[in-house]
């Protein structure tokens, strides 16, 4: 079974290090193209919103950041599950790589949300449902980050943060629902997977491009951070030393 083989290979950081380079370049190029197209399309070609005017163009950076920050946390929860059940080293590397990027992206989503709220609702900060969900997400991230800072042993640090990430992931639906309970001001979700979007295509197409672009950027960033993390941890092993010494072709700085 090829799946089983792949699973065993995934356990080895060395294998990931060796195969990840083309993927990182691919995701990086895709992110660059998609984000450039998306930003130009969203800023210049997308029609104005009849109510919000041009301030709705903030959506093209706010919504992708908010979406991807949630996905990154979800990915961390899945990595935590994998680490807990199969003790896969690579999963801990993934958690470590997801954390800083996720925190930055969540903070960005909050900031752009506030900037968008000023012309739309007339206030920089509104305790609206999705604001609170995003803020809770940021605190969940920060909790795991603080926990990882506090534990010195690598293996225990991984397992503790995996446990917290799993519990957090299970709780996220409940938190979101409870926060929606009293949410009022925000408009309904822009892109949903099941419903037809309420926006015309010339408005949501650039959003789709931006979302894909941020996803690619996230993949690029997280995978390259994983490579740095792997080299840090395995710096004493033979394969890293051999890689540094015998490799005649320059190692890509991705």
């Amino acid at each position: 079974m090829w799946i089983k083989e792949l699973w065993h290979k995934l356990g080895s950081p060395r294998w990931f290090y060796q195969i990840s380079s083309p993927w990182i370049i691919g995701f990086g190029v895709a992110a660059l193209v998609l984000l450039t197209v998306g930003v130009v399309w969203g800023l210049v070609y997308a029609p104005q919103d009849y109510q919000q005017g041009n301030s709705f163009r903030i959506m093209y950076v706010h919504v992708p950041a908010a979406m991807v920050s949630q996905s990154v946390y979800l990915g961390m929860g899945v990595a935590g599950f994998v680490l807990f059940v199969w003790r896969m080293k690579l999963a801990d590397v993934a958690i470590a790589a997801c954390l800083p990027f996720g925190i930055m992206l969540t903070a960005l989503a909050l900031f752009t949300g506030g900037v968008w709220g000023r012309p739309t609702w007339g206030t920089w900060w509104e305790w609206d449902g999705r604001t609170v969900s995003t803020l809770v997400l940021l605190f969940l991230y920060i909790g795991i980050y603080a926990l990882r800072e506090a534990i010195l042993d690598t293996e225990l640090r991984g397992r503790a943060s995996a446990l917290v990430a799993m519990v957090g992931t299970i709780n996220i639906p409940i938190i979101k629902y409870s926060v929606d309970w009293w949410s009022t001001l925000h408009q309904p979700a822009s892109i949903t997977l099941t419903d037809k979007p309420t926006m015309p295509p010339e408005m949501w197409m650039p959003l789709l491009v931006m979302v894909l672009g941020i996803y690619c950027f996230a993949a690029h960033n997280i995978m390259s951070r994983m490579r740095v993390e792997i080299l840090n941890r395995e710096s004493k092993t033979r394969w890293v030393r051999n890689l540094m010494v015998t490799d005649t072709k320059p190692i890509q700085n991705v």
């Binding site: 809770v136 605190f139 909790g143 957090g168 709780n171 409940i174 938190i175 409870s178 926060v179």
Partner: peptide
């Protein structure tokens, strides 16, 4: 998780209070 730290109190709050939020919302409501 925090019992191993000599000063785990603040970390405990950071980890646990976000998870308490739904209880606060429905309870207060």
């Amino acid at each position: 998780i925090t019992v191993g730290f000599s000063r785990g109190g603040i970390l405990l709050g950071l980890l646990v209070l976000p998870l308490f939020l739904p209880v606060l919302v429905f309870g207060a409501s």
